[in-house]
């Protein structure tokens, strides 16, 4: 798995660790970890597409905003995603373009796993390792 959920890191919350060959893939896998923590995505179909463009003053803020879009589109438009693809990611002037695919949530069809309230900076790490780029963060449940 390109991501895992960590025990004992966060008493009331959910801690995620994701890894990717590069930053782009690490962002992608972190978003996937988030999406899969929220829903059972097996039955989610790719019927709707959301293009997300974000800029921020640093990488951590960028990650925060990018992940927050998953929460936003669920609350505001009732969307549940299945896939995410990061089209471009600029480290120098932090910016991201990504495509989320999914459909409108249907309680008869989709299983909710966790309701994520917010992304947090708590314990957020973006670091290079010999396996690639590793991201850790905690989301508030």
């Amino acid at each position: 798995m390109p991501y895992e959920y960590l025990e004992n890191e966060a008493t009331a919350d959910l801690a995620i660790r994701a890894i990717g060959m590069d930053l782009r893939e690490a962002f992608e896998n972190t978003a996937l970890a988030l999406i899969n923590a929220m829903f059972d995505t097996d039955k989610v179909e790719e019927q709707e597409i959301k293009l997300v463009t974000r800029e921020a003053k640093d990488l951590k803020s960028l990650l925060y905003d990018f992940l927050e879009d998953v929460l936003y589109f669920h609350d505001a438009e009732g969307l549940v995603f299945k896939t995410v693809s990061v089209e471009s990611l600029n480290e120098e002037e932090p910016g991201i373009k990504a495509v989320f695919k999914g459909e409108v949530f249907n309680p008869e069809k989709h299983e909710v796993k966790n309701s994520v309230k917010a992304i947090t900076y708590f314990g957020m790490k973006i670091k290079n390792t010999n396996k690639g780029v590793e991201i850790e963060l905690t989301v508030d449940l």
């Binding site: 959920y5 960590l6 025990e7 004992n8 890191e9 966060a10 008493t11 009331a12 919350d13 959910l14 801690a15 966790n114 449940l141």
Partner: peptide, 8 residues
């Protein structure tokens, strides 16, 4: 107040 993480 929680004592055990949800994952655990």
């Amino acid at each position: 107040g929680r004592v055990m993480s949800r994952t655990k």
